[in-house]
Deep mutational scan, measured.
Amino acid sequence: MASQGTKRSYEQMETDGERQNATEIRASVGKMIDGIGRFYIQMCTELKLSDYEGRLIQNSLTIERMVLSAFDERRNKYLEEHPSAGKDPKKTGGPIYKRVDRKWMRELVLYDKEEIRRIWRQANNGDDATAGLTHMMIWHSNLNDTTYQRTRALVRTGMDPRMCSLMQGSTLPRRSGAAGAAVKGVGTMVMELIRMIKRGINDRNFWRGENGRKTRSAYERMCNILKGKFQTAAQRAMMDQVRESRNPGNAEIEDLIFLARSALILRGSVAHKSCLPACVYGPAVASGYDFEKEGYSLVGIDPFKLLQNSQVYSLIRPNENPAHKSQLVWMACNSAAFEDLRVLSFIRGTKVSPRGKLSTRGVQIASNENMDAMESSTLELRSRYWAIRTRSGGNTNQQRASAGQISVQPAFSVQRNLPFDKPTIMAAFTGNTEGRTSDMRAEIIRMMEGAKPEEMSFQGRGVFELSDERAANPIVPSFDMSNEGSYFFGDNAEEYDN
């Protein structure tokens, strides 16, 4: 993207840094990872977990959730003011799984939030270390993106479920800051804005008074975040219109849905970061690795190297396929839920299948599930090659597409044709070009129609051997075009429920 120079890199967003050079960025990201790792080690000690239990991804998720809940100030305040039966607002906890007599047992633990905050700050040299908290939120978000298709949420806001490739980060909490905003897809931002506008339509006082002023500035800020994701002048001009509207209503909703559809071809720039579970960072720190000293990046080879040398386990339900569970977590670790499966298959070195073909449910185990038949197995999170994460949407291309997802959002900077089903997408653009945004709409449609099938995206960008740390010898991959490109292809993934 041309304006790259004016933006802070995501590592800076990730670490609240002012302008830093590459070495400083690597050190501050490393410091953040160190903090998460030290916190995780301490929690495993508190909970008396064995090494194996500490490497269980379900335990990692519970521990991450506990610290996120302990620092969720708004919710904590709300819980104190609106006490609900049987919930102690000062405590947080969740299921911890232990191996007892050759069987997995679930144990519900409860801790004072104050105590968890103390352990977290102690692991982070006394700081609140917001960057580390956001990092864990993005890992949870990436896992949700890989596990669930947001059909219901899309339909509720009037969008087409086939636009799911635009929904990265749709389950990120509001408090995820600049680093969170960077990884949100165009569809996620559109959905947040539509929800806001709908509230304004239904509630006369939404934009009024002292609160209304705050609401208005939040609305304009979200519009600017979305505008910054678009790469064409016409899309940005249309966002200006939406932002400046005196009284946002149905016309703005129409414009936003139009823009979301246009992003299936004229893709937005959305950041991709490899955020790993805390149970990967903990053992690495415990083994003596100093992330701050060595430096770390979320968008280069580092996460690949770390996963190459990590042992992570997962509980497996009786009829689940461990290899499929591994694929789910591998995609989440690489922030690749909406990437082209052919690119992923090449990088991973084994075939990556669409969601609907995987015999696996989510990673988390519900409290009512029976533990008797639970097994555990090693997650295979290694890769054959590594590639640089991208934040450009890439230019655009036609490809055989599917009944489910009709476009992709690249996660890796790797040369390819970008699949999208042009006739299906263009069919949504018939007729409606009147109104105050008509010239911009016409211009956007013209650009979409001009998108050429034979153009290559990320020209000359390749993948790298894991021994090639400096990215000196790019390998331009070859793809098996007979395979499906979309992950949520004609899909039956479970729906995400809060």
Results as ranks from 00 to 15, higher is better:
Ile197Asp: 12
Glu81Phe: 13
Thr92Arg: 04
Gly187Thr: 06
Gly94Asp: 13
Met191Leu: 15
Ser367Thr: 15
Ala366Gly: 08
Ser170Cys: 07
Gly431Phe: 15
Ile25Glu: 05
Phe230Val: 05
Gln364Val: 12
Met447Val: 13
Gly17Leu: 00
Lys103Ser: 10
Met189Asp: 01
Tyr496Trp: 14
Ala181Val: 02
Arg267Tyr: 01
Ser3Pro: 00
Asn321Gln: 10
Asn319Tyr: 00
Arg55Asn: 04
Ile63Pro: 14
Leu108Ile: 10
Gly435Lys: 02
Asn142Glu: 07
Leu133Met: 13
Trp139Met: 11
Asn492His: 07
Ala493Glu: 02
Gln149Leu: 02
Lys214Gly: 06
Ser376Thr: 11
Glu375Phe: 14
Arg208Gln: 09
Glu80Arg: 02
Asp480Ile: 02
Gly86Ala: 13
Gln12Thr: 09
Pro95Asn: 10
His135Phe: 12
Thr130Cys: 14
Asp491Val: 12
Lys31Asp: 00
Met222Asp: 02
Tyr148Phe: 08
Gly393Gln: 05
Leu49Val: 14
Val190Ile: 12
Arg213Asp: 09
Leu381Gly: 02
Glu294Ile: 02
Val476His: 00
Phe291Leu: 12
Ile257Arg: 00
Lys98Val: 10
Asn76Cys: 12
Trp139Tyr: 13
Ser50Leu: 09
Gly394His: 09
Arg461Glu: 12
Leu154Asp: 02
Ala22His: 09
Leu79Asn: 09
Ile41Met: 08
Cys279Leu: 13
Thr430Arg: 14
Gly228Phe: 04
Gly394Ile: 13
Val343Lys: 11
Arg199Thr: 07
Glu369His: 15
Gln308Phe: 13
Arg216Trp: 09
Asn432Ile: 06
Val299Thr: 06
Thr390Glu: 03
Asp372Pro: 04
Glu24Val: 13
Thr23Leu: 14
Pro318Arg: 09
Gly362Thr: 08
Glu292Tyr: 05
Ile388Ser: 07
Ser141Gln: 03
Asp302Glu: 02
Ala131Arg: 00
Ile63Gly: 01
Asp128Pro: 12
Gln409Asp: 00
Ser438Tyr: 00
Leu47Lys: 09
Ala401Ile: 00
Gly158Gln: 09
Phe458Thr: 02
Arg106Thr: 08
Leu166Val: 03
Phe489Ile: 02
Ser50Thr: 12
Met136Phe: 10
Ser326Glu: 04
Ala123Ile: 07
His324Pro: 09
Gln4Arg: 06
Pro161Lys: 09
Asn205Gly: 13
Trp386Val: 09
Ala22Pro: 10
Thr437Asn: 08
Glu252Tyr: 08
Glu11Ile: 10
